[in-house]
Design a binder for these strands. Structure first.
Lengths: 340, 340
DNA sequence: GACTGGCACTCACAAAGTGGGAGTGCCAGT
DNA sequence: ACTGGCACTCCCACTTTGTGAGTGCCAGTC
């Protein structure tokens, strides 16, 4: 059964009204608020069809209709009109991010900004090392057998690790190691470095070999494989808005899920370049988040994606608005990283 | 009016029962569960006195009694018996913290551990730089006019900042700067360094003076004054336990307060050495936390305090248990930092 | 004087009953 | 294909009622 133009219009109206009022919407109210040019009775027939197709449902026999997850999905895919940000919002974004002093600060501000603008829970993944490129490596001798390795990424992120060497090392050798490593790795994306690191070991003369071997292990293990992914979170208080109607009464499972970084990384970290992904209710693999929806997108300088960000809220959320906001913020932060 | 021995005993019983059951406790149930050797009627008289004194109250006429904030306070100060940790708990602490690989990891694990053991919201302040001492300073030349300053604290925390120099600098001069800074500052507590930094500038010869001046500004501003304090949080889901009875229905204000790092720092950062501080309900200065209690303590290697940690929960919480747990964990983490 | 048993009283809470109203489905008419 | 009308459903808010836990007080006992 093909849904004709007007039925889709009805669905859109239902979603919009329900999102706004949080109450089941009936045929009469619908024709009043939107100027569908038909009578309530006609709308009722349309609703019956929409219900049959699974896009809306009645909470109980004699109540208005509420969108199902499938209904929201159709709405998001086909029906929602883009909601451009208000100038005030644009200004808010600029003002909020412009004073950031370092990477931590950028992420922090971003996540708070998102939470504030969307009135949902916001999540921002720290720029992932593995997809960023290397600006500089530094070796700091702490003692004759101990080095600190510091890596500065293009995004401004800094990582450091201690390394215990197999034997004492001369200052000149440290200098040489530093030179070689930088020569080989600077400018490369971290994810591309493993073969290069391997090569570094092979190209080393006998005197540098042992320390370089140890170093390579550390580089591979801690900087590439154990790409420690961090996440920033804000706006959890927004979950408690809207009474307890959303999330069927208990915030517990949601809060629990939000504490699992692994889960968040899965949700917000798996983003394709420049795609905004919307997961609605049931579509979520995580059991605890079946009553929530997620809007996520990637961000990074230019077309490179170095991390994900997005918001999480009740399935009954303002999808067009949130999508627009998340995109705009992501884009702005991406540009910021490009300059930094 | 002095409260005699038995009245205090009654108060203790009320607190313990109420914490356990979350229901107003009546005179009859009280004599049954605790072996007070008197009749319900007597207990009722005692209760009347306790109520007059403001230690307990009735939610409504003809209900049992519930402790007031003042009641909890008296209980904590005078009546609670220390609850030693179970061997299982001790083992849990060790097992949980023993695998930590770096400082971030320690803090992370600690906060989760606390949340798990107490079933409350846990907060851990990252070891504060200002109270920790310096292990090493490193200057990394990024270009002829740009340095990266890296500071490694005794606690393992690492901080870095970029510095733009007034003019080009020679490699040898960088080495000399590094030597001087380390000579002067290593081993000192960061909070004690400002005069030393000042001295460094004054002792510099003409060639080193300009870069040293810039460096000193950065050291003072970013490493000492702007002691960026960080906080880790876990267990927010525990707020949603216990229905909505705690926190008078709305988690919103609590969640909001928990997002304000400034507030958390105030609550958990202001700790006197080796004192465990308990704030109960009303005693809280923060309006939004009037329905919550906080158990906080300082931690650090030996008798030095480098940060605070603790838990936050409903006023109706297991004070003796939480106090014991927080203390034990703080102590364990302190020892860990001492070795690190 | 301290404690106890007894008794009348209070009042939240749960269960059951009631009416109103929003909303529906369907059908006959245009 | 759409509309007006009508009977029907059933949630929800409201009131009523009964029950029981808990209290305060008082007179009596050790």
């Amino acid at each position: 059964m093909a849904l004709d133009e007007r039925k889709l219009e009805v669905l859109r109206a239902i979603v919009e009204d329900y999102v706004a009022t949080q109450e089941p919407v009936g045929s009469k109210a619908l024709v009043e608020r939107h100027n569908l040019r038909v009578s309530p009775a006609t709308v009722r027939n349309d609703m019956a069809v929409l219900e049959e197709e699974g896009y809306i449902r009645q909470p109980h026999t004699s109540a208005g209709r509420v969108p199902t997850d499938a209904g929201y999905r159709l709405f998001v895919d086909k029906l929602s009109r883009v909601k451009p940000l208000s100038p005030a919002e644009r200004r808010a974004i600029e003002r909020f991010l412009i004073g950031a002093v370092d990477l931590d600060d950028v992420v922090h501000r971003t996540v708070r900004l998102l939470a504030q603008l969307t009135r949902q829970v916001a999540v921002v993944q720290y720029p992932s090392l593995s997809r960023a490129s290397v600006r500089h490596f530094e070796l700091v001798p702490l003692s004759t057998t101990r080095l600190m390795v510091v890596m500065i990424a293009e995004t401004g992120r800094v990582e450091q690790r201690m390394v215990d060497l197999p034997g004492p090392i001369l200052a000149d050798d440290v200098t040489e190691l530093r030179r070689r490593i930088n020569e080989k790795l600077v400018g490369k994306r971290l994810v591309d470095t493993p073969p290069l690191v391997q090569a570094l070991v092979e190209e080393s003369g006998p005197s540098l070999r042992p320390p370089m071997t140890v170093l390579s292990t550390v580089l591979l293990e801690t900087l590439v494989e154990r790409t420690e992914e961090r996440i920033a979170l804000a706006g959890t208080a927004n979950l408690a808005r809207g009474g307890l109607l959303d999330f069927q009464g208990s915030l517990r499972p949601i809060l629990e899920a939000l504490e699992e970084e692994v889960i968040l990384l899965k949700l917000f970290g798996e983003v394709e370049p420049s795609m905004t992904r919307v997961r609605i209710g049931d579509e979520n693999e995580i059991e605890d988040l079946r009553s929530a929806s997620i809007v996520a997108t990637g961000y990074g300088p230019g077309s490179i994606v170095v991390g994900g960000m997005g918001v999480l809220g009740p399935t009954r959320m303002d999808y067009p608005g949130n999508i627009a906001t998340v995109r705009a913020v992501a884009r702005y932060v991406g540009d910021l990283l490009g300059q930094g």
